[in-house]
Every structure is written in C-alpha cells, then in structure tokens.
Design a protein around this nucleic acid. Structure first.
Length: 578
RNA sequence: UGUCCGGUGGUGUAAUGGCAACACGUCUGAUUUUGGUUCAGAAGAGUCCAGGUUCGAACCCUGGCCGGACAACCA
C-alpha cells in the first residue's frame, strides 16, 4: 500500500460487479487472514411456519456467499420454543430450500442438538458469577426492567451466592419448580441504555413437548442465549440476520466474550435489511392468521408470498433467485415494487415456457365457408424464443372458440380485434372476416359468423393481406374443458401491514377468479402438475399441484404485459375523473 | 425524550475524495402472425438540511431534521 505512489488508473474489471457491504466485510476478513480464511454461514429458520419470500433473500444470501467464497452454509433449525414449533414446518422448510436449489449436505443441525452444551455454558456463567436465578414474576420482571428512556432496577435475587444459584438452576432442570416460577438471568447491567443488556433471561421453565427432544427438558434457552453459541459451536464465521437484531448484537457479543475459548473461531453478527414487497405482507404471524382463519387455501395458496405458494403459482426457482439478486443487500428499510418480481418470472418463463392456446371465456365462431367435416392439423411453433423447443400439431375446423373480449359490436378505433366487417387472423391459421353475429335476450353475443380466406393459410399466405389483429382460438370439437384460476394481488393496499388498521381490512375480495368452462388445445391433456405454459396473449400458467386428469386445474402465474389493457384502464380512470 | 441503525430519480441498488450509474417502472418510436418478445430512444435525482475541511464532497467532520428498531419467560 505504501508504495502506491504513481496513481495508476484502476483497471476496468468488467467481470467484477460492485460488492455489497457484507461481501466487502468478508473480503476484508479474508485479507486479514481472519478465521483461517474460512467463510462459514448458516440459514437459521425457526420451524414455526412456512418460509416466505423474505426467507428466500436470506437463503440466497447465506448459501450464495458460501458458494462465492468457497465456504459452507449450514441449515440450522432454531428450535428453542417448543410450543410454536413442529416437524411439519421442519419438513416444509427443508423441501423449500431444496426446491430453490440449495443443499446443506450433511450439515443439518438443530439448536436443540446443543441443549446439553448450552446447559453447560449456563453453569459456567453461574460459576463465574455472571448469571443468577431470579424468582420475580413475569409482571415484576417487566416492571423492574424499566423503559427505553428510564433505567431498570436490580432484582432482589441478583446477589444470591454462586452455590445457591447453581443448586437452584440444577433443580430447575430437574423439574422441581413450576413453570414460570424462576428463571436464569445474565448479570449484566440494569441501567444499560440497551434494554437487552438489562439482565436478560437465559432460561425459562416451560413444560412442553418438544418436536425433537420430547419431554427431556423442562427448561429451554432463550434465543439470545442459544443463537450466538450455536453459531460458535458450528464455527460460523459470519452470522447474518435482519436489522431488528441489531440491538441484540451487544448481548450476542457479551455471551461470546464470556464463553469463547482461545484460538476458536468467533462468529460475528452482521445485520441487513429484510425484504418488504408492495401489496403483500411478509410476517409469519400474519400469514399464519390468514391460514388459520381460512382467508386462503393453506400455506401454499398461490396468492401467498410463501416459497410454496410461489411454487404452486408457477414461479420458478430461477425467477425467485434472480429477483432476490436484483433487489440487492443493504441496511436501509425498503419496499420492493411487486412489479420487479413479476418482471423476473416473465423474463424466465418467456425463455422456458412452451406457447399454447387456451380460451378462458369462450364464444363460438362459425366459419361458414369452411367445409363441414374437415379437420386440418396446423403446425405451430412451441416457442419463438427457442427453436429447439420444436413445434406441434393443432387441429383447426369449422367451429372454433375465441375469447369474448376479442369481439366488439361497436369497437373504438384502436381496437384491433374482431368486429363486424373486420378481418383478423386466427393465430397459425387463416384470416377471417366477421359477417354476422347473434345475441340472446340479454344482449350477450352467442355466436359469431365469419368467412375465411383460403389464400391466407399461415406460412403459405399468397393473399398479401395485412391485418392488425391476431387472435388465439381453439377448435370446438377438439377442445377439452378445464378449470383456470386467475389470481390478483391478495391486498389492495400497497402497504397493508404498515397501517394502524388490521391488515385483514385490506384483503382484495377479487384476488381469486375461477373460470370453470375454459377450452384448451388438445396437447394440454398430457400436462402434469407444475408443468408451465404460456397461454398466448393471456399469460403464464401452470398445472395446479393438486390437479387431477379428470378436470385439470391451471393456475395463472402472471399475466403477459398488456399495453392494450393498460390504455383501457387509463381511459376509464380519466372518464371517472373527468 | 435514552441507545442503536438508516436517509441517492416513482421503486430498489451502485458510485468509497474526481463527469451521480444500473435495473424495474413510466413515456415515445420501430419490428412482430402473441397489443408478448426484441430493438432504438426519452423523461425523471444534483444525493434530507445547514455549516466546515479540500483544488474538488453523495462519500470526511460538526450540528440539525426525518425515518426505523428496541420495554415477549417469541425468534
């Protein structure tokens, strides 16, 4: 560094993107030969709910950093509160992480694996005079703790002898005292401006079945006494968590100061901002509320911002990972525009999803000059973005269905679709002209009559005709019926959880629309659950996870971008205002 | 009226003492047998404010202002 006199212009390194603040910190540690130049992270979920998009950020960060720096990332379940945790959640979490494409190899751990070691550490602190058994009630504890602006006062039990503390703590473990009657506290500083340092609770008595240790324990460590030491036990070098744990860091360090042995790897906690998404809630507690009160169809409802919800909705792991990478890592509070998520899935599916035709809200079109008993097998490409995806045969006949929305009796001038006297192309087939239509008593269009121009056959057009609009369609006799579910955002408000009102007041009543009589082209009969398609001109769809062959169900992942719909909407809004 | 952490286009993220960049979104236009994709382009911040240091400050210093976190035997 000292010989850097000639200010050489820094070489442009095109492959090197700018580092986020955590990567910078890691590289600094690496340069200082800290932790034997190892990088070891962990993803530490509590198994008390399903993983959501916010966890995806943490997963991508922790596993991604390990990969980037040739290190390892553990999966550790932070299971120190048995009353909220269960193996159902453990299983779902493991499945979601694997689905995203990450692997903890043989490093699957549980904080409950360390209960015995944690207990030993607690005894050590007692013996060192740094922890004591306190008999204060819950209310008294709160009272003695003070407030953020006023210091607390010391517990009358704070100065028990080491022998008495040790005896009492052992008897706590042995089950001699009722739940809540005593606890073990760290002896730190009741007047600290940091609330977390005011003799924090280390252990509480709680008789409850634990999903892994059963009834072996009746005392359980608190998060603060478990997390840092678990990191230490696993030789974690960089312990990443979200901003709300920033105030816990002095306590994290205090325990480590008193427990870490010479020469051992000492983990450091680094905090980053959690991910917030507009129009959605990312809070396990609130998501649980939606599930328990049947606002949604379980944790994996396609409207849920859970990993399993996105999966059922048709999102891909790549889209989620790309999204999270685009969002970045920093320390300021943020709200990500849900449009960025939608952009990520469209970007991915545009490359991967085969195109098919499906009519969601059908109206019949009869091509009067087309022969009665003829079926043509038309060849359509599966994906114009990727020739290697080949092509397929699509049957065409005298009667087809098109979308009701694609016909207007009296269209505005920029409407490029079917209308009386107008010509449009049926995608991959012919140009047809609308001659006539029928209506029922309520004025609904029931039938549209057209003539086709045989010269305009797709790929062999000799007519030289240019038409503005191209419609998707399915041949009526060949179509099969399916249910299609359209999803919209679950909440109407851009920030449903930041208001004084109950977040449930912002639930969008139209977040799910079910179309039961949709007609799909024949290839879709063979589709398997989770298969993904682009329904041309509509959006991306996938076969529902629980779909059955008898009556298949397709979920809309996301719409195609639709500049026509956008213009319509803007005009409507202007009319309302004007 | 405490401690800690943050304030850069509408949103998110860069620039680490040297021309404020990239992505999403928005708006034009072209291409298109998907009103998709693709392509070309535009608008939009002078970096919360005020001082200071410096030839030069988004970046360093001082003081404000604004926002967030913290008072569960939750994590």
């Amino acid at each position: 560094m000292s010989t850097e006199d000639n200010k050489s212009i820094p070489e442009e390194e095109p492959g090197k993107r700018s580092l986020n603040f955590i990567e910078e910190k890691i590289e600094k540690d690496l340069n200082n030969n800290k932790n034997n130049r190892q990088v070891h992270t962990r993803f530490p979920p509590e198994p008390n709910g399903f993983l959501h998009i916010g966890h995806a950020k943490s997963i991508v960060l922790n596993f991604g950093l390990a990969k980037e720096y040739n290190g390892k990332c553990n999966l550790r379940f932070d299971d120190t509160n048995p009353i909220k945790e269960s193996t159902e959640y453990v299983d779902s979490i493991k499945e979601d992480i694997h689905w995203l494409g990450y692997d903890w190899e043989e490093r699957l751990y549980y904080a409950s694996d360390y209960f015995e070691q944690l207990y030993e550490m607690a005894e050590k602190l007692i013996k060192d005079g740094k922890a004591f058994v306190c008999d204060l009630s819950q209310d008294q504890i709160a009272e003695y703790r003070g407030t953020p602006t006023e210091p607390g006062i010391e517990s009358p039990y704070r100065n028990r002898s080491i022998e008495e503390n040790l005896d009492l703590f052992r008897r706590m473990r042995a089950g001699e005292f009722p739940d809540g009657s005593r606890m073990l506290r760290a002896k730190i500083d009741m007047s600290s401006p940091n609330m977390h340092l005011r003799d924090p609770i280390m252990y509480r008595i709680k008789r409850s079945y634990h999903h892994r240790t059963g009834y072996d324990w009746c005392i359980y460590p608190m998060y603060d006494f478990a997390h840092g030491q678990s990191d230490y036990i696993e030789s974690i070098t960089h312990s990443l968590c979200t901003l709300e744990f920033e105030v816990h860091r002095p306590l994290y360090d205090w325990f480590l100061d008193n427990l870490v042995e010479e020469g051992e790897i000492r983990p450091q906690q680094i905090e980053f901002a959690r991910l917030n998404l507009s129009y959605t809630i990312v809070s396990k507690r609130k998501l649980l509320e939606l599930v328990e009160n049947d606002y949604v169809d379980g944790w994996d409802d396609p409207r849920m911002p859970t990993i399993s919800g996105f999966r059922r909705r048709g999102y891909t792991p790549d889209a989620i990972k790309n999204f999270v990478e685009k969002v970045g890592i920093a320390k300021r509070d943020n709200v990500i525009d849900v449009a960025l998520l939608e952009h990520s899935i469209r970007e991915d599916l545009n490359k991967k999803a085969p195109r098919v035709m499906a009519v969601l809200d059908p109206v019949k079109v009869i091509i009067d000059n087309y022969p009665d008993d003829t079926t043509e097998d038309l060849e359509l490409v599966n994906n114009p973005e990727d020739e290697s995806m080949g092509s397929r045969k699509v049957p065409f006949s005298k009667e087809v269905y098109i979308e009701k929305k694609d016909f207007m009796e009296d269209p505005p001038k920029k409407f490029f679709r079917m209308a009386p006297g107008r010509e449009v192309r049926l995608k991959g087939a012919y140009v047809v002209k609308c001659d006539d239509y029928k209506k029922d008593d309520q004025g609904n269009i029931t039938e549209i009559h057209c003539t086709y121009d045989p010269q305009t056959k797709s790929g062999a057009d000799t007519s030289g005709k240019k038409v503005k609009g191209t419609l998707h369609w399915v041949s009526a006799p060949h179509a099969f019926q399916a249910e299609v579910r359209l999803y919209d955002r679950l909440f109407n408000d851009p920030a449903p959880s930041s208001k004084d009102e109950d977040f449930k007041a912002f639930i969008n009543p139209d977040s799910l629309k079910v179309f039961k009589n949709c007609y799909l082209e024949p290839v879709l009969k063979d589709a398997e659950p989770e298969d993904k398609f682009q329904f041309q001109r509509i959006g991306y769809f996938c076969v529902d996870r629980y779909s059955e062959k008898r009556l298949p169900v397709f979920n809309q992942t996301v719409t195609l971008k639709d500049t026509w719909a956008k213009k319509e909407k803007q005009q409507q809004n202007q009319k309302k205002k004007g």
